[in-house]
Design a protein around this nucleic acid. Structure first.
Lengths: 158, 158
DNA sequence: CAATCTAGTTTAATCATGCAACCATTGGAG
DNA sequence: CTCCAATGGTTGCATGATTAAACTAGATTG
């Protein structure tokens, strides 16, 4: 928030992500949604945020194609907020955030949950980044290259 | 940050991460630092943020053990900001953010860089989450379990 | 048709953010 | 020694984001 500086038109994909979902509430809303929360009141109760903020965030996430509203589902004629594929695509980001806390937090004993494989209840492994030919990569093994000029699409002038 | 609601004592590791580095500038500062930027002026020039904000962010990151200040290094008697292991641990989060943009941004042609394997210049693969026994896991294949009760450390009462 | 639940909107107070302008230190030129 | 420029940082004010609480309005229940 305090969206004084918007990174919407920054050419760094990290900045663009942050512009879209880089605030506490959006991430946490998506986290809840991944657990199946879909109703306004549920989000509000579980996250404890002000309702007006929730309204704004839900609308922003919907506008960005991260959530979509479905007419109903559980009888009641209200609507519910469901993740789109783009929204579900946030999962690895949340896992990365979680694992960073688990690894580096100085009070790990306060962390109350672990992410497990549903199949057998075992903790998942750390997220791993591989090269095309299967080598495990760390931060130092990578570099940034300019994009290959992109096929010059219709410029989005407006 | 409008740190009205601090998630510092939330028991969700995601919330804790967000509390530590969940604001635009911190993430971007770490991004720059991973590229080798270490000087106050460099950060300021590349990110284009106000110096006071940078000061606050650098101090916060330092206090959290994400950056450390070294007395100098390149002659000039000023200090420089270096990543700690905890700071370098943010790398996967940044990669996840980057890949989310690359996959779902509706104007990917505006993204100017790609992350490549330094060894051969090839793009890296997508971050992947595996189970202990090597199966690739998606959001739906995981669940949260309460932590195994943790050895009941001294409660942080204060 | 009254009570209540859901999903908001409005309002007013508060506090963080961001910009700009201002200090302090270092180091070199004259 | 004095002046100037660059680095690193602090202070003050305007904006505006966040919040709780009050209010609205449709749906559900009884």
């Amino acid at each position: 928030m305090v969206k004084r500086t918007s990174f919407e038109h920054d050419d760094c994909p990290i900045a663009r992500s942050l512009d879209a979902i880089g605030d506490w509430w959006s991430m946490l809303i998506i986290r809840e949604a991944l657990f199946g929360v879909s109703r306004f009141g549920e989000f509000q109760k579980r996250l404890g945020l002000a309702k007006n903020i929730l309204t704004v965030r839900l609308r922003a996430l919907t506008d960005q194609g991260i959530l979509k509203t479905a007419p109903a589902s559980d009888g009641s004629a209200y609507q519910e907020y469901l993740l789109t594929p783009k929204g579900r695509g946030v999962f690895p980001i949340l896992v990365a955030l979680r694992q960073w806390s688990e690894e580096f937090d100085e009070r790990p004993e306060e962390i109350s949950t672990i992410l497990v494989d549903k199949e057998n209840g075992q903790p998942v492994r750390k997220l791993e980044l591989y090269s095309q030919d299967g080598r495990l990569l760390g931060a130092g093994d990578t570099a940034l290259k300019p994009r290959p000029a992109a096929k010059l699409r219709k410029r989005v002038v407006a």
